[in-house]
Structures are given as C-alpha cells and as structure tokens.
Design a protein around this nucleic acid. Structure first.
Lengths: 346, 346
DNA sequence: TTTAGCACTCGAGAGGAGAGAGTGCTAAAC
DNA sequence: GTTTAGCACTCTCTCCTCTCGAGTGCTAAA
C-alpha cells in the first residue's frame, strides 16, 4: 500500500484519538496534535483521501472520521508501536499468576477471570487436547469385595480414576489377572483400535471378570475422548456493557447472547500457532462478531496440549496494550503449566 | 391477613395479568376478566384498598397498578395454584436429563444450561460438599523410578489422584512401607487433625520416603479442602435482557455485573432443606438482588452432599410455573446423582 | 500545495402540544 | 350500605419543531 508518511501520521492520530475517546475525530482535533504543523483544511483533504482508500469512515456527513476495520488492520500491521508493559502492569499480572492450584480446569477459569479484570473486556480461555491419546497404564485397586478403583494414565501423563461397583465377587487373583490383561492388550490403543474382535478375545481370557473389564475399557475410552475435546470458559461478560459502543441494547444483546451460549463458544477464533492473533471486525467468520475484535494468545501446555486465552471487545480497542498483556500472561501460563511440570489430573 | 374473597380475586387477576404483560394493570382490564361481574369503579375502590395494604403499587398517579413484593409474596403463599407440568414440558425436561456424563461438574454445568434454556432466565447451579471430609484410603502406584501416582479415596467415596515426580529413588519396599503408614496413620483425619507433631512422628518412620509422604499428605489435604468448598456455575446470563424490565441498561448493568462476578455468586440464596424456595425482591439479602426474585430448588446428591439449581429474574415472573419446573428437574437430578449411584470422581 | 473562509449538512437535545390511559371523587341507582 | 356512571384531573409517552454546534467540502487566495 503506497501511502505518504503524512497520511500515515494522520491516520495514526485519528485511530489513537478515537481509541481514547470513542468519539468521531474531526480535522481540528488532529491539527492540535503535537508534531503535525498543518492546518485543519489540509487534514480534511488527507482524511478524504484516507476515506476513499477505505481506511476511515464517516458515520454521517457532518461528523468526524472513525477508523474502518481496514484502518485498524493497517494500524495493527504497520503503525502500531509495540506496547511495553509498565512495572505496575507486570506486577499485577505476576500477582495474578500466583495461582494456588495447578488443576488445569481451575487455572483456566482463574486465568480467564483475571484477564477479564485487567483488560476490562470479557475474556475466554480454553485448553485444546491432542488429537490422539492412548492409555499407557491401568491400575485396579480393590476397595471392598465388590468395589474397585480403576486408575488409568494416558500417554499425555494425565491420570484419571473412577470408583466402580460390581454385582459379582472377584478374587484377588482375578483382579491381578485382569490388571495384566489390561496392561498388555489395551495400552497404546486409540478408541478406534479397541475393536469388538479385541473385546471378544479378551472375554475368553478374562472369564468372570469380563464385566469389570468392559466397565474399565469403556471408562478408558471416555477418558481418551474427553482428552480430545475442548474445555472452554468465559468470564466477565458484563464488562462489555462498560464500553460506550454497547450502551444501547440492540447492539449489546446479540453479542451477549452469542457469548453466553456455551455451544457457540467453540466457534471463537482458536489459532494453532504460538503468537498473539488479532481478528478485527469482519475478519471474524462468525456473524455475531462482525462488529467486534478478538485478541487471542496461544501457549504451550506441553505433552501435545495447547492453551488459549483471549478477549472480545469492540473494534475500538487499544490493540497494542491488550496484545502485550495477553502475550505476557500467556507466557506466564506456559511457564506454569508447560512441559517439565508434573501434570496433575483433576 | 383478613382480606375479602373478592379482594383476593382482584389481586390475583392483577398479578397474573401483570405477569403476562409486564404492563401496569388498570381497573377496566380487570373488569373484563371472566368471572368477575363488577364494574371498573368498584374495582378501583378495591384496588385502592389493596394499595393501602401494601399489596399493590402505582408507578405514578395515572397508571394502573403493579404488584408490590409483598403482593407477590401473598400471591405465592396463598393465591397461587400449583402449576402442573404439561406432557410436553415433562418430556422436554426428561430429555434434558439424559445427560451423557455422570461427572458431577459437568452435570451441574449442563443442568444449569438446560434450566436456563427452558425457563428463559439466567440460572445458577451448584454443589455443596459436606463440612467434614476425611481420607479413607491411600494407594501409591509406582510408574517409573521417580514417578508415582497417588490415589486417595475420601469417606464420601470420592476418588482423586495425582501424578508425582520425585528427585530421589525409592524402592518397592519403601513404597509399600509408605502405603501402610499412610493407611494406618493418616486415614480418618480432618485437615486440622494432621498436626506438625503427627508429621514429625511419621518422618521418623518414613525416613527417606518422607519427601513423598509430605507431598501425598499435602495433596490429601488439598482434596479434603476442595470437597468442602462450593462449585458453582451460572448460565444464560444474557437471557436477562430478553425481559422488558431489563431493557434499559441502567437497570440491567449492575445485575449483570453482579451475576457475572464469580466471587459474588456464593452470596446467592442457598437453602439447606429440600424444597423449592422463593425469594422475592427485598427478601434477598444482597443489594444487587433487591429488584429481582430468585427461585431455587435443592436436592440430595447423597453421601452428605447437596445440589442446588435456581434461576434469577425480575420480580415479575411466573412463580408457579418456574417453581414446578425446578422442582421436577431437581427431582430428576436427585435420581441421577443421588444416593445409590456409584459416585465417580472427575 | 497549502490555507482561510464560508455555506451547507446533519445529529443531538430542548421545549411544547396532544393523545391516551387510568385515576379519584361525587352523586345517583340498586 | 354497596355499587355504578360520569367527569375532571393527572401523568406519561410520542411526535414535532426548532435551535445549536460540530464538522465537512468547496472555492479562491496565498
């Protein structure tokens, strides 16, 4: 895009003023801006050009200019300076990262809450599991005659358990046999690889203990499947209403409805690679997000898992600042949850 | 409260009309009501009396009447007929109760979502644990040389586990010893009963394995504490905006902010006994709920635990219908989760 | 190429008129 | 004594008009 240096400076001034005030920006306001020694009339001409290029918009003829989504995009790509966190900001984020628990679900929930508080926007957080999980190890523990605890450990080092009650008695040796059978024949398999044939072979070996075996296997499958699905959490929804663009309900309601519909959340942007991504207005595929921007940071939880933390807000937002905060926070979460930590189940 | 039969009928007609329309009800409207063959003028007189008794209110001099919180209370206590669910309603609720998972957290979340959908109000659901939990049983499983799975089972039949890594090697026999020590000295104790003295005695017995012991015990304490805390979930927040009383933001915003603030949620009404409870307007202790009503049903999960499911909405709501639905749903959840089921951890 | 000047446009907000719904009171009817 | 019809009154809501002010685009001069 060939665009003069002066136009860039004007565009940037318009965007930054609009981000700060939420009011359409007039030529006079820009003229007063330090560093630009040009008259309002000149600026008007330049703004008319910028509008023709699709970077600015006019709500109506006699109002100032407002950045278009394309304008924001240009700003984010080329004009925006990297925001450096102040010491206070870092301290605040660090304090928030002192999470008491390392339980994945809770960390995600808490992280989302904190980011929402700090950014003043609704925030979403999620964890995405790997696509192929297998069981590495089974353990059967007998509690009472007909009560067992089954413990399974996945190849992602996650441990899950379940208490099971059985109508039939089983002896210690039967349990031992079952344990061996499970650990030899059912480890390293994806749910699809546990075929009816495999089960019928196992049935012959397990005999009376087959009922328990079946329960254990179906639990294992459940665990594997669950790992592959997403856990998602949204926080601070009502903060949307604190921003002037959502002061009228017609605008706010559909967005709030979308964001509070749990099912819909999985349609929020979820980038694959590790970076802060910014989706401005119509760059979002989802209809309800056409007038909003989404900023999302992704981080490595290790063992094939990724975490995501992002915020949703009006297109007018301080992209530099928010992106920097998300980036810093995501880095902190990666350290907290990332590879090298012992992953604890929940 | 001595109040004539006719006044009761008028009050009831006013309330039910207001519930249906959300508009102040005039004398003419009531006069047209089937069954009441009295003129608007008479009704005006009666309504003036009802207002003097504090059961009705007038938004302004020349508007119709609106029920006061006291009026709703009287209606709920004495006038309201028990709503009987239609077959469709029951089917819908039954379908919603076909939850795939029995994981407590998920059931709670899902139940809240469903109730919110059905009632069109934001809903909250929670589980409250017992006040004293102890560990019934410990199991230590060795995965690799320095990696262990610890499994603890509480006296509420909940099983939790954690993967632990240790910098030091331990032998099979040391593990066995530790297992015995844990199961003899640390079972049946509340977190408070695990004193520094007890730990130092254990230290002498455990010797090299003390590091692992300490990790296991602190995990056990974490599990016990966690059991005593509440898990809460809110769903369908944005539905609030669908109701006319929240069409202006000044009214909606503080309530939405309150309900989306996770910490605050624990101040929502949480009755102890099994019944549907109704809190109307100022009957709620919390300031943010002064203009709202809360209907909440409580049910038994068994093993000392209770579940709660409720909705929040404007004071104008169809108390009979909502209460009936919550009651039915809570009963279903009790069957699903209640005593007799094997409680599975998550 | 930039700037000053000026007519023009458009939205926000204030003020006022009128309609409509509902009331309370009075006096007549049952 | 209770109920009802009639009527003046009150208050909100909506619509209309008017004005104000901010900001623009265009033209002509610097």
């Amino acid at each position: 895009m060939d665009i003069s240096e002066r136009k860039k400076r004007i565009l940037r001034a318009v965007i930054e003023d609009y981000i700060a005030t939420a009011e359409p920006v007039g030529s006079k306001t820009i003229a007063k801006h330090a560093g630009l020694n040009i008259s309002p009339a000149t600026i008007r001409n330049e703004m008319a050009d910028l509008e023709a290029m699709g970077l600015l918009e006019q709500p109506h003829t006699s109002a100032g200019r407002v950045p278009s989504p394309g304008g924001y995009r240009f700003y984010v790509n080329e004009l925006m300076e990297r925001h450096r966190l102040s010491v206070q900001e870092m301290e605040r984020l660090n304090a928030a990262l002192q999470l008491k628990t390392q339980e994945l679900d809770r960390v995600i929930t808490e992280a989302s809450r904190v980011i929402s508080q700090i950014t003043k926007y609704p925030s979403y957080a999620m964890s995405a599991g790997p696509s192929h999980v297998t069981i590495r190890r089974f353990d059967l523990l007998m509690v009472e005659r007909q009560t067992f605890i089954v413990v399974v450990m996945t190849d992602t080092n996650l441990v899950k358990n379940k208490l099971m009650r059985l109508p039939a008695d089983l002896s210690e040796s039967q349990i031992h046999l079952l344990n061996c059978l499970l650990n030899t024949s059912f480890t390293g398999l994806t749910p699809e690889e546990i075929t009816p044939e495999l089960m019928s072979v196992a049935k012959q070996t397990a005999e009376d203990a087959y009922a328990l075996l079946a329960m254990v296997v179906s639990f294992a499958i459940e665990v594997m499947k669950e790992q592959e699905t997403y856990a998602i959490h949204m926080s601070g929804l009502a903060r949307l209403l604190e921003h002037p663009e959502y002061r009228n309900l017609e605008r706010a309601q559909p967005l709030l409805a979308y964001l509070s519909e749990e099912k819909m959340l999985s349609t929020l942007p979820m980038p694959d690679d590790s970076d802060v991504k910014i989706y401005i207005g119509p760059e979002n595929a989802v209809g309800a997000l056409q007038d909003t921007s989404v900023i999302v940071a992704s981080y490595d939880i290790g063992e094939n898992m990724r975490g995501l933390i992002g915020i949703v807000g009006p297109t007018r937002m301080d992209y530099a600042k928010i992106a920097a905060r998300l980036y810093y926070f995501a880095e902190g979460l990666a350290k907290l949850l990332g590879p090298g930590e012992s992953s604890s189940e929940h």
